[in-house]
Design a protein around this nucleic acid. Sequence first.
DNA 1: AACGATAGGTGTACGCCGTATACCTGTCAA
DNA 2: TTGACAGGTATACGGCGTACACCTATCGTT
Lengths: 238, 238
Amino acid sequence: MAEQAGTLRRTPLSRDRILRAAVALADEAGIESLSMRNLAQELGVVPMALYKHVANKDELLDGMIDVIVGEIEPLVPDADWQRALRRRILSARQVLRRHLWAPLAIESRNMATPAVLAYLDSMVGTLRAGGLSADLAHHVMHALGSRILGFSQELFDASRQAGRSGATEPEPAAGLPPEAAARFPHLAEIATAASHDDGSVVGQGCDDQFEFEFALDLLLDGIERLRQQGWRSAHRPG
Amino acid sequence: MAEQAGTLRRTPLSRDRILRAAVALADEAGIESLSMRNLAQELGVVPMALYKHVANKDELLDGMIDVIVGEIEPLVPDADWQRALRRRILSARQVLRRHLWAPLAIESRNMATPAVLAYLDSMVGTLRAGGLSADLAHHVMHALGSRILGFSQELFDASRQAGRSGATEPEPAAGLPPEAAARFPHLAEIATAASHDDGSVVGQGCDDQFEFEFALDLLLDGIERLRQQGWRSAHRPG
DNA sequence: AACGATAGGTGTACGCCGTATACCTGTCAA
DNA sequence: TTGACAGGTATACGGCGTACACCTATCGTT
């Protein structure tokens, strides 16, 4: 392409090009194969060239997170704070479904990039505009936690596996193996409960999107109830 | 100690001794400095010796998780499912506060060890005994997510920092720096809200334990309400 | 037109990491 | 006495992030 002899130069590196390539590589090959060396190769460049544009790998990861935060739908004003928040969070979730490595990356970082802070700030703004006290809004942000960014760490979660290898298809196998089902009867029972048409098991028949919305609405409804009651923090009544 | 000349042999390795040493090392020095080499040195042994007792580093991490799951208080029967669950989850949280590396380790593993499954199974048992349908119990387990194991991934969390380095003291600094407070007014506002006697900011004055219980109770109360309503899943009415 | 600064890509090397493989050695059953 | 075997050792390989010294094309200034 741009690699012909002599005169034609390769398109130059830039922080932005690096970040987008890194996101693409993590999307396709999994976060565990995102190394400075692999990334450089992908860009047709020697590894150390990257360091002219990003300080180190941690900063690269921060930049990648900023890229995907930038993909979240902007805030849509709505008189109903619950609806506005819900909509944006579900948009964030759609973004993360395209970038399965992101939860692990976010979890492993220190989280202080301006893009993330701006996103969080606007979410708090929605809460305040909806009539929540600063006090309550504070606790709500903690309660929602990573759900605000569109993910939650499930304890039995097929997508975690998928997030490492770049597998996009939904992992065919592995509910409870039969001998485990005998040892853990309650897990076996709920594995087949809430299954769908196919009567399949957790990880197969279990609808991630439904589980996410179920938990989200449980929280949002509880919060709205507190707001209506004019909830005030009663702890450490100093 | 047991290292004297000739006759006295060093106390022999064992899987258990390795796991406990690994947990101790992660507790003290942070998970990022838990390498097979460091661990071996800690045990006065050559790195490859460990591989006679654990298959590889991933299995080591699984074993470490099992160790800490074993530290969680056993289930205390209670007529009130909410109280029983709450008590055990808060016990799990106390355990994790002693092992700040654990959330990151758990998050990064594939999660299928029998010890964890047994723990989850007993929690589901509590829900079922409390009158929740298998269906509802299933969704509840997803909704609680990692909170069942006593942690939640906060987005602004000082303990994540602490979880990497082995710092045990609660990280003195770092609320919002002043120029950030100007750019993110809502964050600045809630940072000082819900502060305590000292009027300090998120990460300083913010009471982790309170935030955890606030979110937990929000969920548990919402669930109990659903149970009383005889909630049934209405989605995908196939 | 010549030049020096500078931005950006290169090459080499260091010290970590996990772990495969082969080897040694002390213990104990036969 | 022997020989199998469990468990600790020695060496080595390929990968990682990245420090450091180097080269080179570009461009504003003289």
